[in-house]
Each structure stands twice: as structure tokens, then as C-alpha cells.
Write a protein that binds this DNA or RNA. Structure first.
Lengths: 347, 347
DNA sequence: ACCTACGATGGTAACGTTCCCATTCAAGGT
DNA sequence: ACCTTGAATGGGAACGTTACCATCGTAGGT
């Protein structure tokens, strides 16, 4: 009475249909065409009658094909990650794979645990968006031959395909836009760069281009979670410093944009007069008057590309091709926050 | 050269350690204490040397325990769903289960596919947030004895544990608040109610309470994706209609709140003067001047509760307890959008 | 001294598949 | 008429693990 998990097995279906289990197996793999019409209908009927579902566990065990892709996400509460994940999932499904997502909450310990887990389920490939340092676990998985793709991160000397934004180009676009709009004194705000390579890249490019273009400005990295005051302070200092150039803030990602917008609002800053621009498009960017200018990432595309790269490796096992690096371009969405008001004395 | 997936098996570890595979198996299950000290260290060393990881597929096959929980999400791009999912994942992990999430994009076909998939992986329990109609697949899964929990939905005569918001109470809270703030003419806006029971519940309660409390107002359901104009039109009509009562809009969920806020902004409506309130707290609700009043759902708690309910069923197999219904209370976050401006003629 | 009991270990048969290798039969080429 | 071929099917051995049932000491009770 307790365990009435009446899952039918392939053998029961075979018996019911009066055929061999091999034939039933063929019917449910991609060898259906090798079976005669009559056989197909008989099996179909029996399977339906018994409500049979192939056991993926057994399949995975026998053939070594789990048909599972694993994904490691640093922060599932970040809309960017979710959007990418959406793309990843769709692509997986389209190619007959299932996705197992693990969220690490930016915690290296959780990352290790989850990697062990995904390894235990024998995922055939791994999409990774986490940690600055490649953990020992990750290296082992790579050594064992599981192909993996790094999302929006690169991991030092660790060799793997990478998919993400063309960060340098994105920063350039931002600077182009801000300059064109007349802002000449810039503050770049980022979360700590040590954890994520893309954060580092963006910041470095910003600082380098500041010099190249002869602009005023500086960059700051600070943790948003703990020290809410640090951010407000950094902004206040920047805005208070004397300068004959209009000032603008550039936010390194969506999290920063949110925090900065809050801080600016708290300080009564008028957007546009002080410029504001962020990397990552968010739902609400057009709602905060006068609208926040952003660089949108093609999130779904990035997700899909990651899966494509993965499956390509999977198909070309052995041909150890050099790591690929796929870079997507950001798209500028211009809004009021980078529109300077008309000068007070017209004519 | 091609396939260097050198996953060690339990047998190799046993050989390397000079013990039987049974002992190795014991070491990696929860029977480690049955082994002598020496044996434990020998196995540990061998396992580490060979970089052994137990094969979860084989485990699942043998014991029938996949240690997998499946989750079906109607719309992964909805922050509410993500937050709940976060809670579900944490709870699973805490109890030694892994989570397999499938997103249906509100598409019944995808829902069916994904259910079949989850069944194929022999998930031990299912957390479901989807579809108005219980699909045939879902019924079969339930009949086979897989316990399942409905999230923020109930499915007609379909019996299962349910976890979600106390919708009636939430609507009452909203009405209490709006009345107290002096709004007497209300428009309730929702996505189509046919797909989701909670949408239906909320709307019905609203309409019922309107009568009970003797308030003016009405409710409307419309699809946000297709007919952007319909929403604007509904709002315009409502605001244009003559009434001696201050007007307010109540949004059935986060999606609606976003769309409505856009529409109001497009129409140049001043928030507060016209009231606005939404169910679901969102990142940006305090950013849109003068802040949008919301009813926050305890999302993570809901997720965790769902898993708890599931695991309880799993443990008490056979004792067919009646379906439980766990309801959480919303939390009012009052902001400027329900603050009427002081009358123009003071004194 | 002997039997009991328990603690520590090992061997073997499943679990539900797929894959490889038969086997059968009919059609086509010589 | 015979051999070859291939298409349609079936039988059995694996895949890596755990559960069950042995087996062996050795300590404790009589």
C-alpha cells in the first residue's frame, strides 16, 4: 500500500506487447525507424496502456549519457543571470538536453559543493558563471574531460571557452556617449573587482580610456551589501569636488545602478544635470524620471551561444580545439539621465 | 585519446584500497560508522588518489532514490518566481536534495514536456507553479505516488498540498489601506484569471469586498503582452469617469504593477493624487517618485515551506494525510503612491 | 571450554537500460 | 538454384551502485 510507484519497466512493456525488450528500447531511442509499422503500433499501445516512461537514470548509467547540462550561477537574484539562464535553458531543450541549475550565492563553499553534485549526476557539460578562482573541483572536472563554458568570466590561466560581453567595447561606447552628451568628469562605480574578471576588465578599460581621451574622473569599487554608507559617501565626494566639467556616473552593472539610483535620489540629485548611465538594462530604467540610459546586454543570445559552444565541444570530442572567445556587443539605450538640460540663459 | 573521462568506479577504488566494493559503498553512504578506523582512512586515501565521485545515476537506479526534486515554474522572468525558487533551492540543499528547475513560459505544451522529463529523471517530489488545468501528465505523476506541492495555485478538484499567499486577507489589507488613505473609487487590474487560481481568488475577493464595504470601483483582467493599448484605455476610462471620490488603482501582481506604472507615466498621472498599489514588492518600487505602495510576499518562506511539505509527505509515505493548505500573510509597505497630497486650501 | 552474539567485512544479485552480436527471412544478383 | 545482402528482430552482457545474506573473528555469558 505504501509504495505504489507503479513505474512500468521496459521489460513489462515488452511482455505486454509480445516483443523483445530490445525492440522497445529501439522504439524509445532514436532508432524507431528500424522497426516495422506493426511493431511500432503494438509497442505504442502497450506503452500507453502501462503508462511507461523510460528511466533516465538507467539510460544514463548504461550509455554514459545523462543528457544533462549543469549550470552554475553566481547570483540567481540578479536579473541578468536569470535572463541568461533563460537562454541557456531554451537552447538546451532545443537540443534535447535538460538543465540543472545551481546557485552559489557567490559563496566558494557552495560552489564546490554544487560542482561535486553536478559531477555526481554526470552532467555532460557545464556552463559556469562564478568565482574568480578556479576551484580544485573545477579543474578536476575539466581534466576529466567534461567540456565547460565560462559565462561573463574568465579564470586566469584556466583554459576554456568563454562567452560574454565585449567589455572593452562596451566601456568605449559608454564613454563615447557620455562625451558626446557633454559630460567631462566621470565616476565609475563597481562592485569589488577581485571576484569577477569582467568587472576587472571593465574598470581597467575605463581607467585606461580616461587617460587616452584626456577626461577627468576616477573609478571606485565597493561592496554594496555591507557598507551602504560607503557608496553614498563616494558619490557625495565626487559631486562636491569642484570642476568646470559636467559630471556623470557610470555603473558597472545592474546591481550598482540600483544602489546608485537610490543614493542619488536620497541626495536629491537631478538626473541629466548629473549624468547617470549603467551597464545592464533593467525593467524599471524607463520609469525613473527622466529615464536611465543603459547599455543592454543580449542576455538570451549569450545564454544560447554558451550552450552552442558546449555542444560543439561535445560533438568534436578529442579534437582539442583551442579555447574560443565569443564576445557580444552591448546596445545603447539612450534616455533622459544622460540628457543635459538646456542652459538657463537661452538666446 | 578521445574519451578520457577517467571517472573512477567504486570497484577501482576498492581494488586500490585493497578492500571490497561493499565497504567502499558503505563509506560513501551513511554507514561510514560501521567501518573501522583503518578501513576508513585507506578508502579515503584511495578515493582521493583516484579522484572518485559516486555515480548518482547508478545510485538512483539501484535504490530508486534520485535525491532529486523537480520544480515547474510558469515564468522564470518573474522576480516573484525567482525569489520563491531561491527559497526552494536552499531548502532542498539543506535536506540533501538537488533541484531541477523547468520553466514553462506559461505554455501548456512545454509543461507537459517538462513533466515527462522530470518523471524520466524519477524526481522524488515536485513543486509546481503552473497552468490552470491539471494536465493528464500531472495526474499520472500524482497517481504514481510522487508527492507534489502546488505553489500559488490550486487546481480545481485536484488534491494536493498548497502553499501560497493568503489572497483574501491580502486583498482585504489593500482595501483597508486604500480606504484609510481616503481613496473611494477603485480599479483592480489583473492578468487574465483563467490560467491561475490565485488571480481568480484575488479578483473575486476584490469584487466581493467592494460590495461589502460599499465602495465604488470595478475590476478588469487583460493580457499585458499583446494588447498594450487595452491597458492604457482601461486606465484612461477609469480616470476620466466622473466621481466625487479619490481614485486608486490596485495591481494584482508585479507584472501588472510594472505595466500600469508605465501607462500612468505615459498619461502624466501624478501618483498619490491618483492612488497606486501593487501586490508583490519589486526592486524599484521605492525609486519611482513618490514610491509605490506594495504588499510584499514572503517569497523565500513560501519556497521553503513548499519543500518542507513535500519532504514530510515523502517521509510519511502511505499515511495518506489530507491535503494541507499553508497560507502566508502579505506585508504592507506603505509609500507615497497612496499618500494623498494635502488639500490646496490649507487652514 | 562452549555457545551466543555482535561487529567488521566480503560476495553476489539485482536495478532498467543500451549495445553488441546473433538469428531469421526475403529479395536481388549471378 | 545458390550466394550475398540487408532489414527486422531477439538474447545476453554490461553500466556502477546498493541490499541482502554470508563469513569470520573475538568478546561476553554461562
Amino acid at each position: 500500500m505504501a509504495d505504489n510507484l507503479n513505474r512500468a519497466t521496459i521489460l513489462e512493456v515488452a511482455r505486454d506487447a509480445g516483443v523483445s525488450k530490445t525492440s522497445v528500447s529501439r522504439y524509445f531511442s532514436s532508432e524507431r525507424n528500424r522497426l516495422s509499422e506493426t511493431m511500432q503500433t503494438r509497442i505504442a499501445r502497450a506503452a500507453k496502456r502501462l503508462n511507461y516512461r523510460p528511466n533516465q537514470m538507467a539510460r544514463g548509467l548504461k550509455g554514459g549519457h545523462s543528457r544533462l547540462i549543469g549550470m552554475l550561477v553566481a547570483d540567481i537574484l540578479n536579473p541578468f543571470s536569470v535572463a541568461v539562464m533563460h537562454g541557456v535553458e531554451q537552447a538546451c531543450r532545443a537540443r534535447g538536453f535538460s538543465l540543472m541549475v545551481c546557485n552559489t550565492d557567490n559563496d566558494p563553499a557552495q560552489e564546490r559543493d554544487h560542482l561535486a553534485l553536478l559531477a555526481a549526476y554526470r552532467v555532460e557539460g557545464l556552463v559556469i558563471n562564478a568565482a574568480g578562482q578556479p576551484s580544485r573541483e573545477l579543474k578536476q572536472i575539466a581534466e576529466q574531460g567534461t567540456p565547460l563554458v565560462l559565462l561573463d568570466r574568465s579564470l586566469g590561466d584556466f583554459e576554456a571557452d568563454e562567452v560574454g560581453l565585449d567589455n572593452a567595447r562596451a566601456i568605449d561606447m559608454a564613454l563615447d556617449h557620455l562625451s558626446a552628451q557633454g559630460y567631462g568628469d566621470l565616476l565609475y562605480l563597481s562592485e569589488p573587482t577581485s571576484q569577477a574578471s569582467s568587472r576587472q576588465l571593465r574598470r581597467e578599460r575605463f581607467e585606461q580610456q580616461l587617460v587616452v581621451r584626456g577626461l577627468e574622473g576616477k573609478a571606485a569599487s565597493l561592496s554594496l551589501d555591507k557598507d551602504h554608507a560607503a557608496l553614498e559617501h563616494a558619490i557625495r565626494d565626487f559631486l562636491a569636488a569642484p570642476s568646470q566639467q559636467p559630471k556623470a556616473l557610470l555603473c558597472a552593472n545592474g546591481h550598482v545602478t540600483l544602489a546608485v539610483t537610490r543614493a542619488l535620489q536620497a541626495q536629491g540629485v537631478v538626473l541629466g544635470e548629473t549624468g547617470l548611465m549603467g551597464i545592464d538594462e533593467l525593467d524599471w530604467c524607463d520609469l525613473v524620471t527622466p529615464g536611465i540610459t543603459t547599455l543592454a546586454q543580449p542576455t538570451e543570445g549569450i545564454g544560447r551561444a554558451a550552450v552552442e559552444a558546449l555542444l560543439q565541444r561535445l560533438e568534436n570530442r578529442g579534437n582539442a580545439a583551442p579555447p574560443r572567445r565569443i564576445q557580444y556587443q552591448a546596445q545603447l539605450i539612450s534616455r533622459g539621465s544622460t540628457q543635459r538640460p538646456a542652459p538657463l540663459t537661452p538666446r
